[in-house]
């Protein structure tokens, strides 16, 4: 009985399907009622948990309850967002988007800019900021040739040891050494900067909302405080810094460094270069990543196209077949 009903239902479905897209057998209409009557009990929708009144009540209760709980906890409705007194002055001015030469999905870093940026970091920022995660060797083949880097590293003294007398000793830097720190520890850094800690710059581009745009805007954004805003002694007004008062003074001024490649060292040029350098420092895999991304998209795109085509090819007989129900002539 059960298997008979299932067969009838299957037939019904296939013939209904065939009416919608193809011509049905002429006798279809008469047979429909009879077949339907015989299988009605098994096709009627069972009363389900999804349609019961208790479910509706429970879901409503859960929704209202969780909204009430959230509102009680956080003092504002969820998802809508309350009105708050936060302002640009509190959160920092949103930095403008800048047309970085490495911005596009296929654009590599401008390595000449990284090289100039390293110079700005070394001559300006390194007086206060460490760059812990970059070793000398990381510059090789990115912004400098290996002999240049060996020379630069050798100019710095590193403590090493212990030697066979058990004593630490000083030696010139090697490619494997990390960038020297301006201060031996955090306390010394704070003491040298009126209590503020100059953050390590290795990952600063990734660590700040607005990323490279923010760092660039911060470096070039120093202005006099607007009327009515007073900045505590020792702090400086910068609208891009959350709160507006930053312990780092403006450090970049036109002509501060001299680029060997002849690029005019304007404030914005230096800010752009040092930000590009810091972006590289935070994302040294950047160029390789974009290139591999291009290759992966081509390969996976072709494979997807191929598999879609193969699927359609294999399914063609099934998708184009036509099922017609011809009722037995001798049915009562």
């Amino acid at each position: 009985m059960a298997s008979k009903a299932t067969t009838a239902r299957t037939l019904l479905r296939s013939s209904a399907w065939s009416t919608s897209s193809r011509t049905a057998a002429p006798s279809f209409k008469q047979s429909f009622g009879a077949r339907f009557a015989s299988t009605q009990s098994s096709t009627a929708p069972a009363s389900s948990v999804f349609t019961s009144g208790a479910t509706l009540a429970a879901a409503t209760g859960l929704t209202v309850g969780s909204i009430a709980w959230y509102t009680h906890l956080y003092g504002e409705l969820p998802l809508i967002g309350g009105v708050s007194a936060s302002s640009l002055a509190d959160n920092g001015l949103h930095p403008a988007e800048h047309p970085w030469s490495h911005k596009g999905v296929l654009d590599s870093f401008d390595h000449a800019s990284i090289r100039r940026g390293y110079q700005v970091y070394r001559e300006v920022c390194a007086a206060c900021h460490s760059l812990d995660r970059i070793a000398w060797r990381n510059l090789v083949g990115v912004s400098h040739a290996v002999d240049e880097v060996k020379e630069m590293a050798a100019e710095v003294e590193y403590e090493d040891g212990p030697n066979d007398q058990g004593e630490m000793f000083q030696r010139p830097g090697k490619l494997s050494d990390y960038m020297p720190k301006p201060y031996p520890n955090e306390e010394a850094a704070r003491a040298g900067n009126a209590g503020a800690l100059p953050p390590d710059l290795s990952l600063i581009v990734k660590a700040r909302h607005g990323a490279a745009d923010y760092v660039y805007s911060l470096l070039t954004g120093y202005i006099d405080p607007p009327a009515g805003v007073t900045v505590r002694e020792g702090l400086n007004y910068n609208p891009y810094f959350p709160g507006g008062a930053i312990a780092m003074a403006r450090v970049l001024f036109d002509g501060l460094v001299e680029y060997p490649d002849g690029t005019p060292a304007t404030t914005s040029q230096m800010a752009k270069d040092v930000t590009t350098f810091l972006h590289w420092a935070a994302e040294p895999e950047h160029d390789e990543r974009k290139k591999i991304g291009l290759q992966a998209l081509i390969i996976f795109g072709s494979l997807l196209t191929l598999s879609l085509y193969t699927k359609r090819f294999k399914w063609t007989p099934l998708k184009t077949r036509k099922i017609v129900y011809v009722p037995p002539k001798d049915a009562h």
Binding site: L106, D107, S108, H111, V142
Partner: peptide, 8 residues
């Protein structure tokens, strides 16, 4: 060729 002049 896309990144001509920019790479090391």
């Amino acid at each position: 060729s896309w990144n001509k002049g920019k790479q090391w």
